[in-house]
Design a protein around this nucleic acid. Sequence first.
DNA 1: CGGGCGTTTGAAAACTGTCAATGCTAGTGG
DNA 2: CCACTAGCATTGACAGTTTTCAAACGCCCG
Lengths: 236, 236
Amino acid sequence: MDAPKPTLPRLDESLLTHLPPFSRLERRQIRTVLDQASVRRYDAGAHIFEEGAPADRFYMLLDGYVRVVRITATGEQVTALHIPAGQLLGIAKAIGRETYPATAMTATEALALSWPTRLWDDFVATYDGFATETYKTVGQRVGEMNTRVVEMATQQVEQRVANALLRLVNQTGRKVEDGIEIDFPITRQDLSELTATTLHTVSRLLSAWEKLGLVESRRKRIKVRDPHALVVLAQP
Amino acid sequence: MDAPKPTLPRLDESLLTHLPPFSRLERRQIRTVLDQASVRRYDAGAHIFEEGAPADRFYMLLDGYVRVVRITATGEQVTALHIPAGQLLGIAKAIGRETYPATAMTATEALALSWPTRLWDDFVATYDGFATETYKTVGQRVGEMNTRVVEMATQQVEQRVANALLRLVNQTGRKVEDGIEIDFPITRQDLSELTATTLHTVSRLLSAWEKLGLVESRRKRIKVRDPHALVVLAQP
DNA sequence: CGGGCGTTTGAAAACTGTCAATGCTAGTGG
DNA sequence: CCACTAGCATTGACAGTTTTCAAACGCCCG
């Protein structure tokens, strides 16, 4: 919400060198980019920007996970997607918008760089590969949204939840002993907002799957023990 | 699917002068753009391009309506959006994709220009306003998809169908005596693919609304007589 | 004028949501 | 260090919208 403030120590260039939108830049260019950036740490659950607000800044998530949600007139939340560290967000400018199309809130403690949106056109024009890579990101997100529309239109709840779990595990999974765990705290409610159902139904499904040995879950943590069996469930 | 072929008579420049992506171009530039274009007429129901195919060309729809659909593994169709004359389509390149993300089929007889995708970067670089306007188009479509996800996640079928009807009427409505009619042939099945329900449910809803005097419909035609009442129905 | 395709309608079944109540966990503060 | 409590999760019973299944109708185009 309030404007991010620059930190005193200079940011290290290695922060960006391996991230796609900046990977083709020279050291000197990265220096310039970093000198224009603000860093900020966010608590878990903090709002980075709000749907409908002027798109003042765009962000690069350095650490943590962000949930992109829309909130309906009646107060219900619908989660559009999750963004892992290393991706841009708040890039309204890339799709010709002056305001943010959704609210971004952190799913974990997070760290992000940001730049004033007025620098966007500079970045696109000046930095080789920046535009290409950001449009790829847009493309992936559009693709993912598309997939969700198709799923919601054609599949039953069980399949949607299974698919959502698999996607989370693929995108943000952390390999642990006997399974893969979703790398951030996620509640039944969160999962239900991602799959257009209720927390009750999600709870029942997870309980059932746990009895079958497909998943294991504690409060806010979900571990998938048998991804393949889930893939089977996810099919109609 | 075979390649569009150029027509013999030269295309008139006035075709493009008032269309957003080209409206800032000079006459001479439009001439160049047109000389590189192919025109083609499509029958109603024809496929312009297919999901997953290499994005060889991008298109400007000059007349008619196009339906963008995705087809699931089990053969069900889900309609993503409708595109009216005057808009670009097949602009995979704008979102960093090499293949079309969905199938485009005509809802009516249609007329479209097209260019080889290799010209895309030229267009973006050379023509003032082209990039900006196309990204606005992308933004609008993303916004619309977003809205549909939210609707599907939070609303009942009746509200979704009402909202879909209103959107169609707003975007492609033609004012007629005592009402506004959707400007292209649309079946119950089509509407159900747009709202994630079945043709039966759509049929029942339309029958009920017709009894109430909100709409009037014949085979493949829907006329909205009382948009305001529909807006009320569309609310939760 | 015929038939195909779109449409209508009834009845029954099925998912899934709603309501309600309780149990449990993890973090907080004394 | 332990008790407390707020938030998260579980579960049963029930209701209701929506789909599914089936059958028949009727409009339009060729």
